Amino acid sequence: MVQYCRKCGKELDDDAEFCDSCGFDLNTNPTNEENKSEISQSNENKSVETKNDKNEFKNKLPLILAIIAIVVGVGEGLGTPMLMGWTSIMSSMAIAIIGGLIGIYLMEKMNEPVIAAAEFIITGVLVYMFIGRFGEISAVLFIVAAILALYFKGMNINSKKLWAIPILTFVLIFVLLIAGGALYQVNSENSIAVGNVTQNITDGGFGYYSGDVSGDIRVDSSFDYLEVTVNYYDDDGKVIASTIGWNELHPDSGKTYKFKGTYFNEQAPKTAEIKVVDSAKSKTPFYTENITIVTSSGV
């Protein structure tokens, strides 16, 4: 009986076990071989698909993290206490949104991971500068997004001209901040008046001095928050006590308020400083007055 090679088709003797042309094993079950081949090919396809899925996820990870940073930045801004100043809060949220979106556009549309990373880092730093520890998480997320963009998307720079974008972002924010801050400071100083300041610090005779410095503050403009702080100093100019004499969210324009900075300490204060600020981190008060303390005996 004549048989043929199932692989190359050559006519063979009926008792042949191998093809003398291609070497095919005639005892091999063709169905099993085909199944093995199909299974092998299927496994290879699955391996390639899995690898592609992992690569795609890694490629999208900087984008995902940047989006999360924007959302967290807005959430942190909304959760920041008003005493940080509404201007700072709004600025931090605007920077998180605009800076984050610019970074995403540079990374995804312009294929500029290095410049996008610089934009993310600048955005995170600016958010932290405006609201401090209340913006720590979003700042860290922006910086991590920058690192991942460099790691997964490479260090290529296609257009050096685009470096102007993160640089201008940084410069523009600070120009607006300085100009707006200067104007706000002048207007605020002209809208606050402190008067009728009195002091009443006495020696109680038990090794402690107590009393207060009090007065009036008139507000003639709209503020999100105002605070009167009274600091007490010793002979060497060192602060020995500090107290908030008054604070108010959205104080009424045209209204006069009373403040009182209480004192209780073993040491007699020599001077006191009255400061009016609009946030806990303000370094430039709207009003400052220094007075000499005359201690009386309460015995």
Results as ranks from 00 to 15, higher is better:
76 E>G: 07
21 S>A: 10
233 Y>G: 11
207 G>F: 04
147 I>M: 02
217 I>S: 01
295 T>W: 01
1 M>F: 08
195 G>N: 11
133 R>I: 12
261 G>R: 10
282 S>R: 05
143 I>M: 07
111 N>Y: 14
83 L>A: 13
65 L>M: 05
210 S>G: 11
232 Y>C: 04
177 L>R: 12
152 F>Q: 06
41 Q>Y: 05
97 I>C: 15
119 E>I: 12
232 Y>V: 04
158 N>L: 02
295 T>Q: 01
214 S>C: 01
151 Y>N: 03
48 V>S: 04
176 L>T: 10
34 E>P: 03
91 S>C: 14
68 I>T: 00
125 V>F: 15
170 F>L: 08
290 N>W: 01
14 D>A: 10
129 M>T: 15
107 M>T: 07
158 N>G: 08
113 P>N: 12
159 S>M: 03
296 S>I: 00
9 G>T: 11
80 T>K: 03
96 A>C: 14
201 I>D: 00
53 D>N: 11
266 E>D: 13
199 Q>G: 04
9 G>N: 13
48 V>W: 05
90 M>C: 13
296 S>H: 04
210 S>H: 07
169 T>N: 14
220 D>L: 03
80 T>R: 04
251 P>S: 11
253 S>W: 09
288 T>H: 04
88 S>D: 15
49 E>W: 01
119 E>W: 13
280 A>S: 05
240 I>M: 07
59 N>I: 01
204 G>N: 12
149 A>T: 10
111 N>I: 07
140 V>G: 01
92 S>V: 11
233 Y>H: 12
247 N>G: 06
39 I>L: 05
286 F>R: 06
174 F>H: 15
22 C>P: 03
134 F>Y: 07
113 P>Q: 10
31 T>C: 01
38 E>C: 04
20 D>C: 08
235 D>S: 12
62 P>K: 00
76 E>S: 08
127 V>Y: 09
73 G>L: 04
22 C>A: 08
69 A>P: 10
266 E>Q: 13
118 A>I: 09
255 K>V: 08
238 K>L: 05
144 V>H: 02
125 V>L: 15
8 C>G: 09
29 N>L: 06
287 Y>A: 01
201 I>S: 00
144 V>S: 03
4 Y>F: 11
151 Y>C: 05
5 C>P: 13
88 S>G: 15
4 Y>T: 10
54 K>T: 07
126 L>Q: 10
288 T>N: 00
43 N>H: 08
260 K>H: 00
182 A>C: 12
178 I>S: 15
245 G>L: 08
254 G>Q: 10
257 Y>P: 02
119 E>F: 13
63 L>V: 07
81 P>E: 11
131 I>L: 04
6 R>Y: 14
139 A>E: 06
285 P>E: 00
28 T>P: 10
41 Q>E: 05
186 V>S: 13
148 L>Q: 02
196 N>H: 07
208 Y>H: 10
168 L>T: 15
184 Y>S: 12
163 W>R: 02
48 V>Y: 08
70 I>Y: 01
20 D>H: 11
52 N>W: 01
16 A>F: 12
262 T>W: 01
96 A>D: 14
174 F>M: 13
93 M>Q: 14
12 L>N: 04
209 Y>F: 12
198 T>K: 00
30 P>T: 09
109 K>S: 13
75 G>E: 06
186 V>P: 09
255 K>C: 07
258 K>A: 14
281 K>C: 04
120 F>A: 08
248 E>R: 11
179 A>N: 14
